[in-house]
Design a protein around this nucleic acid. Structure first.
Lengths: 149, 149
DNA sequence: TATTGTTATACTCTATAACTATA
DNA sequence: TATAGTTATAGAGTATAACAATA
């Protein structure tokens, strides 16, 4: 195989990855919007669901944003009824952001949506091809983690 | 192969795609920031590079945003010296957004960066695996285009 | 002194609506 | 009457800096 062909193939995969990024992002954002959530607020809720009630400081670290940004996101999620601010049991400076029943059921729906989306995207692709795709993506992700670390 | 295994594999690929979306987006945004561009402004410049001098109306349609948004983006790109607003030769209502020499050389650098990134991400992956990855991504993209259309 | 979260302020992207100049 | 682009206004996400309460 000619070297120029190899370069072309790589470029093709890169363009495919960029398009996946755009379309998958659009699809996810649309799904969240139907639940009245923006990307950033859903991300916070997602972290909260994984870790349990957390201080805003811990959320800022997990989301890699400033404390100011978390204040704004929690303000929004509190207004929409997804979370509450509870007093911290031992540190009177801190607040524990806690999902409400609405917040928990929203997260359950989002997680079910992920399983559904996984099924939709890969429906009709033979198991061997799914496995090959997973291996290729593993390689790309390893390189990507190197580049962005 | 058990059906539960198949579901697990699909879910794994979906999670990989989500991580690619996050990391690739972060990497791209970082590269653009080094050129003093935001994602949205780079997108406009990208379209402009592909189509040549365009009216703001045409750009709004291509970017799928409102005319007001294009006004703001062009304001920014004009201030940073990447584009100019030129009179339209026949329609005195319209303006032709036109890349400057700086804008063109910035685009050349971005395009070279894409080729470099494609090489970096797929370095060390055998040609047959690159081809398999491309086929898998083709399948996913076809499904994704269906879902988001 | 250091840390948690807030207020103050600012910038970017985005949208809708009203308006001007032109077609 | 319709279209191109701007001004006016608003909301979301993000940041830095100054500040209050608490550790």
């Amino acid at each position: 195989m000619l070297d120029t062909q190899r370069v072309t193939d790589r470029r093709r995969v890169f363009d495919q990855l960029l398009e996946v990024t755009v379309l998958l992002g659009r699809d996810m954002t649309g799904a969240l919007a139907r639940d009245g959530l923006t990307d950033s607020r859903a991300h916070l809720l997602w972290v909260l669901d994984a870790t349990g009630p957390s201080t805003q400081r811990a959320l800022a670290d997990a989301l890699e944003v400033t404390a100011r940004t978390v204040t704004a996101l929690v303000d929004g999620l509190e207004a929409s009824g997804h979370v509450t601010r509870e007093p911290h049991p031992t540190d009177r400076r801190a607040l524990l952001v806690t999902p409400t029943a609405v917040g928990r059921s929203t997260m359950d729906r989002l997680k079910a949506g992920h399983v559904q989306a996984a099924d939709d995207l890969l429906a009709g692709l033979p198991a061997a091809d799914v496995a090959a795709l997973a291996r290729g993506l593993d390689h790309v992700l390893a390189r990507l983690r190197d580049l962005t670390s």
